[in-house]
């Protein structure tokens, strides 16, 4: 099949950036979307042009590296699918596709379709962990965890931090990502001692990064490749509000 691509090209963070039109020919339906871009890049290099930079690594939908907008949808039209797992059989010959990077103040464009998602790491640094030093853990079966609770925590822990939720959100909010991590740990007995501190510091870290405010549009849930539910956002809000009203916050970390 032959496709027309309009791809966001931006040389560096400081560069203006613009959409550039490319024609890709001879794409088979069995190729993945990223393999289609590989083909485009091979053609560009042969023509002496710079290939399109895009992020990718495992190409199995689990590392969370890949992702960009395809015709206004994060990771493209197929639900519960990262762009590396999206195959060309879901497109038609002659399709016109617009590819853009995630757009958010907190995700500055690095180059072309590559953005900097360091904000997510900083949110985790603020409290997305259980403070248990190596070697200090008790016997694993000492604390039974109801299966339903453990499964629920897993549903939240499945987040791959790709950033699609932020990209699709009309507010550019990071509630789905943050709440997934808050909920994963706050649901489990192991996460209880730091539960309210975690909710407080992670919400505040998230807001400090410059993400927008959640208006409960649920766009994030619609595009999340791992199908993470916005129920976790409600859970995070509850823990946060409870923390604000009752909990004694811990002193800030030493610098």
């Amino acid at each position: 099949m032959n496709l027309t691509l309009h791809v966001w090209r931006q040389k560096s963070p400081a560069d203006e950036g613009r959409m550039v039109r490319y024609e890709v020919t001879g794409v088979t339906e069995h190729a993945s979307f990223l393999e289609m871009l590989d083909i485009l890049n091979e053609q560009l290099i042969q023509k002496g042009e710079e290939p399109v930079a895009f992020e990718h690594d495992c190409r199995e939908g689990i590392c969370g590296s890949c992702g960009f907008m395809i015709n206004g949808e994060a990771h493209g039209p197929l639900p519960h699918t990262t762009v590396c797992q999206l195959h060309m059989r879901h497109f038609k010959d002659g399709d016109v596709l617009h590819l853009e990077p995630w757009r958010s103040k907190a995700f500055p464009v690095v180059k072309d379709l590559v953005v900097d998602r360091g904000a997510f790491d900083r949110i985790i640094q603020s409290g997305g962990f259980v403070s248990v030093a190596t070697g200090s853990a008790p016997e694993a079966n000492l604390i039974p965890v109801p299966k339903a609770l453990s499964d629920r925590a897993f549903d939240a822990a499945a987040c791959i931090a790709c950033g699609a939720c932020v990209a699709q959100c009309p507010n550019s909010a990071a509630q789905l990502f943050t709440s997934a991590k808050v909920s994963h740990l706050n649901l489990l007995p192991q996460g209880q001692p730091e539960r309210y501190d975690r909710a407080l510091s992670m919400v505040e870290a998230m807001e400090k990064e410059g993400f927008g405010a959640c208006s409960n549009y649920a766009e994030c849930e619609a595009v999340c490749p791992k199908g993470i539910s916005i129920d976790f956002i409600a859970k995070m809000n509850r823990d946060y509000l409870k923390a604000k009203s009752t909990a004694v916050p811990k002193p800030p970390l030493e610098a």
């Binding site: 962990f129 259980v130 248990v132 190596t134 070697g135 200090s136 853990a137 008790p138 694993a140 604390i143 453990s150 499964d151 925590a153 897993f154 822990a157 994963h184 740990l185 489990l188 192991q190 996460g191």
Partner: peptide, 8 residues
Amino acid sequence: QCVAQGVP
């Protein structure tokens, strides 16, 4: 160690 970290 992993269970204590919250690995589900």
